[in-house]
C-alpha cells in the first residue's frame, strides 16, 4: 500500500501580512454542495436549518445551490447523514477535497479584489454576509464577504495555488 498523505493545497504558503492587507490560507475542513432538484419547492429554510444543526455555514452559490462550509473535517458517518438529509428534494455532494479556501482581509482588501473581479464591491451592493460566484482574473471563485474588509475566497483545488499567486501579485503594492 503506497503511503498516501493528504496535503493541503496551500500547505507551503505562509500568510502575506502587512498593515494594509493580509492573505492567508484557511483550513481544509468541510465543503458540501447542496443542489435542489428542478421541480422541488424552495429549500432555503431547510438548507439553513441543516447547516445550523451541523455547525456549518450555508452560503448561496446559485439559485437552488449552496455551499455548506466549516473549518473542521466532518466524520464519514456524519457526512453520510448530511448528504442524504434533504433527499429527495435536494442532494448533497462532498466537495471537501475539491474546494480550497483563503482569506483576504485588511483596509486594502477591496482595492486588491477590485483588480481581479468585476463584482460591485460597494457595501450597499455587496453587504457583509453575502456570497457571490464570480471570476478573479481567469479563475472561477466563490466570494463571501464576512465583514466590510474581510473576504473569503473559495476556488477549485487545482486552481488554488494559481489564485494565491494572482492575489499575492495584486497585494504586492500594499505589502
Amino acid at each position: 500500500m503506497p503511503d498516501l498523505r493528504a496535503l493541503p493545497a496551500l500547505a507551503d504558503r505562509t500568510p502575506l501580512v502587512s498593515h494594509g492587507i493580509r492573505l492567508s490560507p484557511l483550513p481544509e475542513g468541510t465543503v458540501l454542495q447542496m443542489i435542489v432538484g428542478p421541480d422541488a419547492p424552495d429549500q432555503t429554510a431547510n438548507v439553513e436549518r441543516l447547516a445550523n444543526e451541523s455547525g456549518l455555514a450555508a452560503r448561496p452559490l446559485s439559485p437552488g445551490q449552496w455551499l455548506l462550509i466549516g473549518d473542521k473535517p466532518t466524520r464519514r458517518a456524519d457526512m453520510k447523514h448530511l448528504l442524504a438529509a434533504l433527499e429527495p428534494q435536494a442532494s448533497g455532494i462532498d466537495q471537501s477535497h475539491g474546494r480550497v479556501r483563503m482569506r483576504l482581509e485588511g483596509p486594502m482588501a477591496v482595492k486588491v479584489l477590485a483588480k481581479g473581479t468585476a463584482v460591485d464591491l460597494n457595501q450597499r451592493a455587496f453587504p457583509p454576509g453575502r456570497s457571490v460566484a464570480t471570476l478573479i482574473g481567469h479563475i472561477a471563485a466563490h466570494l463571501t464577504r464576512h465583514d466590510v474588509e474581510d473576504f473569503e475566497i473559495a476556488v477549485l483545488r487545482g486552481l488554488a495555488e494559481a489564485c494565491w499567486i494572482d492575489l499575492a501579485g495584486m497585494c504586492e503594492e500594499f505589502v
Binding site: P63, A125, T134
Partner: peptide, 10 residues
C-alpha cells in the same frame, strides 16, 4: 437576473 451586472467574460 440572479447575480446582477457582470462582465461578458463570465
Amino acid at each position: 437576473p440572479h447575480c446582477g451586472s457582470r462582465p461578458k467574460e463570465e
